[in-house]
Lab assay of single mutants.
Amino acid sequence: MAEQVALSRTQVCGILREELFQGDAFHQSDTHIFIIMGASGDLAKKKIYPTIWWLFRDGLLPENTFIVGYARSRLTVADIRKQSEPFFKATPEEKLKLEDFFARNSYVAGQYDDAASYQRLNSHMNALHLGSQANRLFYLALPPTVYEAVTKNIHESCMSQIGWNRIIVEKPFGRDLQSSDRLSNHISSLFREDQIYRIDHYLGKEMVQNLMVLRFANRIFGPIWNRDNIACVILTFKEPFGTEGRGGYFDEFGIIRDVMQNHLLQMLCLVAMEKPASTNSDDVRDEKVKVLKCISEVQANNVVLGQYVGNPDGEGEATKGYLDDPTVPRGSTTATFAAVVLYVENERWDGVPFILRCGKALNERKAEVRLQFHDVAGDIFHQQCKRNELVIRVQPNEAVYTKMMTKKPGMFFNPEESELDLTYGNRYKNVKLPDAYERLILDVFCGSQMHFVRSDELREAWRIFTPLLHQIELEKPKPIPYIYGSRGPTEADELMKRVGFQYEGTYKWVNP
């Protein structure tokens, strides 16, 4: 592979701008107003304001973009700056750019259920340069409990009458099928589907988006991507930290609602779906819905739930269990780990287990898709061969690698495990991989909904998990304890083995 010439960040961002501006969906010269509902909250200060700053800094926003914060707290732009700027990672050389960014910011205080507050917000936006005809993007960085009041008031008082209007809704989209349907029906009564952007930030990850290209742009994968060759698929999300004093919020939802029903299920769809007619948003989402419709409700015998306990040999936070978090209700049975087996009941995947695993306070930070292939028929190497695996590593250190057998150097035919490896950090030294939120917010500006969740996708996802969630809430089974920093409950490994996964433990990928 030829040595790549190092590029400056300015040059890299210039390439990104060229890609972005050559499309006809990006209205570079139009006025846009980006409204952050819930501007005083954690999500706004840690993710949304920093993301908008990065896009502005790199010249990736339309030229005439204004940012308006809205929340109940009586704040000023200076207050917003004070709480969000520490997350910007701005350099001293960017000081003038930073001043320009905050000059485009404003803030309006108001209630979430008060019509007069929204009329005041609308008047404020109209007073901005060309504000009355601007395109408006409303980001709901809010708890779902206020979605209905907020969307109703936005629709009645704050819509642009000339430009387009788009609304970005953060997960969780309800707690179960019934609450999700209620919320979807409410929002759909106010906005068209092409105006609604239900954001799952995992769909903005580079390697998640790469799944489609790997599958449908490489001839070698087509013939082997089926039940005849693939023994099982494992989708993993692991965090090495616990709730760390923020367990009160987590306890309301648990690990299945927080990660599995959305992030992991979306990745499953991209692995299992048929080739779409095109890369058009609805063509892709149509195929994802077909996959979900082929999955039956989760069966309790295919589920393992766990909850982390303190590690007596650990240090600091590792010595504390979930129930030691003062914000967690006493005696909570909320799971911090889950392993679930699903089956896609169609011709391509009949009988292939899709194993979804996620948890907190585990032994490493990792998100990946792992396809394990069947054993080689007619073994001539005296059971020395391990199964081939194709691994798409989402985070950290984005990579695609194939675990395969090669001859060990020497005189004899002794096979050993090795890999074919594409590590993004080595291959793409001159490429700026956008943060997931950067990519998705740019998608909203461009009107691309491919990486957002459609209402029928959402409904099918909740259909699969709601009976299990209701059973857990009714019966309150005690989750299996696992030690902070471990791989999780051993019962999860036993479940995976029972459905056909072979864990060798003899080879570990190392970032080159």
Rank of each mutant, 00 (worst) to 15 (best):
T151Q: 06
R9L: 08
Y249A: 04
G41Y: 03
P86L: 11
T91H: 12
R175K: 12
L190K: 08
C13R: 14
F173D: 03
T145M: 07
G69R: 02
K171G: 02
L137G: 08
I224K: 03
T10H: 10
F66L: 10
F237D: 04
Q195V: 05
F221N: 08
R136G: 04
F221E: 00
L214E: 01
N185E: 12
A90V: 15
G38T: 04
I48D: 04
N135L: 06
F88P: 00
E85G: 10
V12L: 14
L235A: 09
E19C: 15
K82L: 13
M207S: 01
T51Q: 11
I168A: 14
Y147I: 02
G242I: 03
G222Q: 12
I35M: 08
N122E: 12
S189I: 07
G174D: 00
A78G: 14
T151R: 00
C232A: 15
N210W: 04
G23C: 11
G110P: 03
K95S: 12
S157P: 01
P143S: 07
L203C: 04
I52T: 06
S179Q: 07
N153Q: 14
F250M: 00
N218Q: 03
G23V: 15
E244N: 13
A127M: 12
E18K: 15
T236Q: 08
T243G: 09
Y147N: 01
D200R: 02
S184N: 13
Q28E: 07
Y147T: 00
N135Q: 08
L7V: 10
D113M: 11
H27I: 14
C158Q: 06
I154Q: 01
S180N: 11
I256K: 00
N126V: 11
L203S: 01
I224N: 10
I187Q: 04
R104E: 01
E19S: 15
K152N: 15
K238Y: 00
L16F: 13
L177I: 11
D200L: 03
S188W: 01
S132A: 11
F250K: 08
F56N: 01
G163V: 05
P143H: 00
T31D: 09
M125F: 13
E94W: 06
I196K: 02
F138E: 04
L177F: 09
R136C: 12
D194Q: 10
E170V: 01
R72S: 00
Y118Q: 03
F191T: 02
I36Y: 01
K46P: 03
L190I: 14
R17L: 12
L96H: 15
P144V: 02
I162M: 14
I35R: 06
H129S: 10
L235I: 14
W53Q: 02
A6E: 15
L61K: 02
N64V: 06
L190N: 10
S188K: 13
G14W: 11
H129V: 14
W225I: 08
I15H: 10
R136W: 06
K82N: 13
L142Y: 03
F241W: 10
E99Y: 07
P240R: 07
K46M: 04
I162R: 15
N210L: 04
R227S: 13
R72T: 00
P62A: 08
N165K: 05
K171H: 05
V146M: 11
N135A: 10
E148Q: 11
E244W: 13
W54C: 07
D194L: 07
N122D: 13
E244A: 14
A90D: 06
V150W: 03
I154V: 14
L128C: 08
E193V: 08
R136N: 09
D24C: 11
F87H: 14
E19G: 13
R74Q: 15
A231H: 07
Y147E: 03
G163Y: 05
F253L: 02
R17W: 08
V233W: 01
I255R: 01
D194R: 11
K171S: 01
S184H: 06
P50Y: 00
N218C: 01
F173M: 08
F173P: 02
M125Q: 03
Y49V: 05
Y70N: 06
C13S: 12
L177W: 06
F250D: 04
P86G: 07
D194W: 09
W53P: 02
A115L: 15
I167V: 14
V12Y: 12
I196H: 01
T145C: 05
G38F: 03
P240T: 13
A127N: 12
G254M: 00
Q133E: 10
F56L: 04
A2E: 11
A115Y: 12
T145Y: 06
Y49F: 08
Y118P: 04
L60I: 12
G110R: 01
F88S: 06
G248P: 02
Y118W: 14
N135M: 10
K46S: 03
Q209S: 12
K95Y: 11
S106Q: 10
R182H: 10
A149L: 14
I15Y: 09
K205V: 05
G69F: 02
R219C: 08
D176Y: 01
S123Q: 15
I199S: 03
P50E: 00
Q209A: 10
D176N: 11
D194A: 10
D100T: 13
R227P: 04
F66T: 08
I196M: 07
I33N: 06
M37E: 03
A71D: 01
S106A: 11
I80N: 05
A39K: 01
L211W: 02
K205S: 01
F87Y: 12
R120T: 13
Y202G: 03
M207N: 10
P62F: 04
H32S: 10
L43K: 01
H27G: 10
L130S: 15
E63Q: 12
I52E: 03
L43P: 02
R74A: 15
A103V: 08
F56V: 04
T51C: 09
Q178A: 15
F21W: 14
P240G: 10
K238Q: 00
F138W: 09
V208F: 04
A141M: 03
F138T: 05
N126Y: 11
F101C: 00
F56W: 14
A217C: 10
I220N: 00
H129L: 14
I220P: 03
N218F: 01
R120V: 14
V169L: 08
P223S: 10
F56R: 02
E156Y: 13
Q178F: 13
K171E: 03
